[in-house]
Design a binder for these strands. Structure first.
Lengths: 225, 225
DNA sequence: CGATTAGTGGAAGGATTTCCTCCACTTGAC
DNA sequence: GTCAAGTGGAGGAAATCCTTCCACTAATCG
């Protein structure tokens, strides 16, 4: 489960460390700039040379694939763990959404960026895992709504789109202020979902299929480019 | 006030029309892609040739300047009108925030993008107008809080950052679904600001100076690049 | 500790994107 | 109808980005 590959020549210790640093840096840069961030910026952020990056990931597609899979696995693991261990659906949902960026990367970014779509074209595992996350998310949402902890007039699509927007507020540096600000804004955003809404929302709850539809039409700025 | 310049040779009718189309298209592309969007994409979106764009705006800086000024003027006009005509501060504030993108472009984007900072370096009017918008925004917020219409534990900076994130949800095409979805998500976001918060927010209210500070540190993803 | 070989960084050439100018053609204004 | 302002798009210059190559470094193993 936790194993890396079948059993190719294991990486040397330093190479393994670099590989992980690259994935982590790439993830951050993808979120900060986009999936079209220059490879050299990724290398610099990871503190390695450009050649090291290319040796490990022969082209951008491979890097995107590795980052996406790594991210997906983390989200799915978290989602499963939460659904199993946390009896209160509202708490579980909030904890899941708390890793906004993972969820955003998992559900939206891998489905939106042209680079990502190309890179992940022949990787069905991605779609499976995305579906898994979506399923858990929807289930938690419904249960939280059933027991009155979340306003009833929203759908999973609403949640995802708000998340997608909020992910832009993720702190990049280790700056203290940045961390605090994110905590505040996340809490603030969550407050929008509490029950007894101030006013009914226009239209009907947005589902994930609507998000898909919007993406195909390039309907929202967040799907730009 | 409404006059275009001192009195250079007035543009021919079709040229004037094209100029306006270009500004409008550039604004949309800036929001969709960023201030580094290729000039040709702007031209295409405006339905004009690349040469026409360059004839009207000799380089990117001029275009950014024109778009920013146009946008600023609209926001300032709206802000003044609202403060004068709308007695209820909460309603006025909401109406102002309703043009998320104008406000976002005015306050954040012109202060963040490297291109924009370079282009607007010697245009003090921009800073004046931004200050004007900020002043009205802060005043409306405080008044709305004083009369209990908005939760007391937020500052203008919180508002601006949430706006900045929400602007990513702006509809791009004329798609009906996109419009509705934006309305929903805007209403949802506003609901986060209603009084009697579910839980107190961590930290202290974020002011605009904090936003500036964060920008300089590149502290949030939204300031990326 | 020394040999071996996977691993590394950065320079550099090639490919691609983007900028911007030029000019033959079109169209509004008078 | 004249003509100057205006237009589109081709194409060269410039910048950006991708990728390879190779001399050098440092884990690993005996």
């Amino acid at each position: 489960m936790q194993q890396e590959r079948q059993d190719p020549i294991p990486l040397r210790a330093d190479a393994q460390r670099n590989r992980e640093q690259i994935i982590q840096a790439a993830r951050a840069e993808f979120l900060r700039v986009g999936m079209d961030v220059p490879m050299e910026e990724v290398a610099r952020a990871a503190g390695v040379g450009i050649a090291t990056l290319y040796r490990r990931f022969p082209d951008r597609s491979e890097l995107i694939k590795a980052v996406s899979l790594d991210n997906m696995r983390r989200v799915v693991a978290l989602a499963r763990r939460l659904e199993q261990d946390e009896p209160d659906p509202a708490t579980a949902l909030r904890a899941l959404l708390r890793s906004v960026n993972d969820v955003y990367l998992s559900i939206v970014m891998t489905a939106v960026s042209a680079h990502a779509r190309e890179a992940l074209k022949d990787t069905p595992e991605i779609d499976e895992q995305r579906l898994e996350v979506l399923t858990v998310l929807s289930r938690l949402l419904r249960r939280a709504q059933d027991q009155g902890a979340i306003r009833p007039d929203i759908g999973a699509g609403d949640l995802i789109l708000v998340l997608a927007a909020t992910s832009r507020l993720m702190p990049i540096t280790d700056d203290d202020l940045g961390g605090t600000v994110f905590e505040r804004l996340f809490a603030l955003t969550m407050d929008a979902f509490r029950p007894a809404p101030a006013s009914p929302l226009p239209g009907r709850p947005v589902e994930y299929s609507d998000v898909e539809h919007l993406r195909q039409a390039g309907g929202l700025a967040i799907f730009g480019r």
